[in-house]
């Protein structure tokens, strides 16, 4: 059976809240009912079939074709199933997501994986700012699950992140791991300025020393062989990611910080 497909008819002028279009919400709904769902567009609401061409199919796998960076909240609260996005997406991709898989072939806007609790998001492009972060004023970012970004991320990746993992195959922007509470951010490329700014706990794992170095707020704890790293790399092997191909290493230089705060976070750099 083919997938339930929403093909965007035209480039939207206003932002569209696509949050209702998840496998959970659309399960067992006839196509006519799905077509009649009202989506918030700007300050008004518009029927789904006025925005998208619909192709009937299995609602457990939803496809957004011809997607645009104005499509927000895709995968909101989803607990199971798959969403495939062909093109770019807007803000809050996978917000509050608890399970299932979400894949995007283009770039994402801000707050990808915002406050997600489980499941997997794969961005086959660049992630915006605040990947895995918390909404403004909220104290916990993502609390579980995995975000994979094959490109680079914007600023404040993992802001207030509490659990889960963010795997960045490219570069991480400024303030990566800012205010991080726990969890793991791994970066195969370079990192921007202020790495681990106000980081409380958690791990930032790097395969190379950042071009800007480690900030003075982190103290060098020396070189070590850490037993948990082989377990972590073994868990990466099942992912469709460059991280699955990384040769397992356990020798790292350990930096502890941010010492302006409680200083229990760590930056581990492969040696």
């Amino acid at each position: 059976m083919s997938n339930l497909t929403f093909t965007l008819k035209a480039t939207p002028k206003q932002r569209i809240d696509c949050g209702p279009l998840t496998p959970d919400n659309l399960a067992d709904k006839p196509l006519a009912e799905i077509a009649a769902i009202e989506l918030v567009v700007g300050k008004s609401t518009v029927r789904v079939d006025a925005l998208f061409e619909l192709a009937e199919g299995d609602s457990n796998t939803i496809v957004f074709a011809n997607s645009d960076s104005k499509l927000d909240f895709i995968g909101r609260n989803m607990t199971q199933g798959n969403i495939l996005v062909e093109g770019d997406v807007g803000a809050y991709l996978g917000i509050f997501m608890e399970g299932g898989e979400l894949a995007v072939s283009g770039n994402t806007g801000i707050y990808t994986g915002c406050e997600m609790k489980g499941g997997q998001i794969k961005v086959n492009g660049n992630g915006g700012d605040f990947v895995g972060g918390a909404r403004p004023g909220r104290r916990n970012g993502m609390t579980g699950g995995t975000v994979i970004v094959t490109g680079s991320t914007g600023a404040r990746t993992g802001d207030h992140m509490r659990r889960g993992q963010i795997l960045i195959e490219g570069n991480a922007g400024d303030y990566c791991g800012s205010r991080m509470i726990s969890g793991t951010i791994a970066v195969l490329g370079d990192c921007g300025a202020h790495l681990g700014y106000a980081m409380k706990r958690g791990t930032i794992l790097l395969t190379q020393m950042p071009s800007r170095g480690i900030t003075a707020n982190f103290n060098n704890c020396g070189s070590h062989t850490l037993a948990f790293l082989p377990l972590m790399f073994a868990s990466f092997k099942k992912l469709e990611s460059e991280f699955a191909k990384v040769e397992t290493f356990s020798r790292v230089q350990r930096y502890a910080g941010d010492l302006a705060g409680i200083g229990m976070g760590e930056i581990l750099v492969k040696i």
């Binding site: 969890g183 791990t203 070590h224 062989t225 037993a227 948990f228």
Partner: peptide
């Protein structure tokens, strides 16, 4: 550290962790 849904503890000791 949560790895593959299982929680592990890294306890610092004199020979490493």
């Amino acid at each position: 550290k949560m790895i593959d849904g299982k929680r592990y503890w890294r306890i610092p000791v004199m020979d490493g962790e």
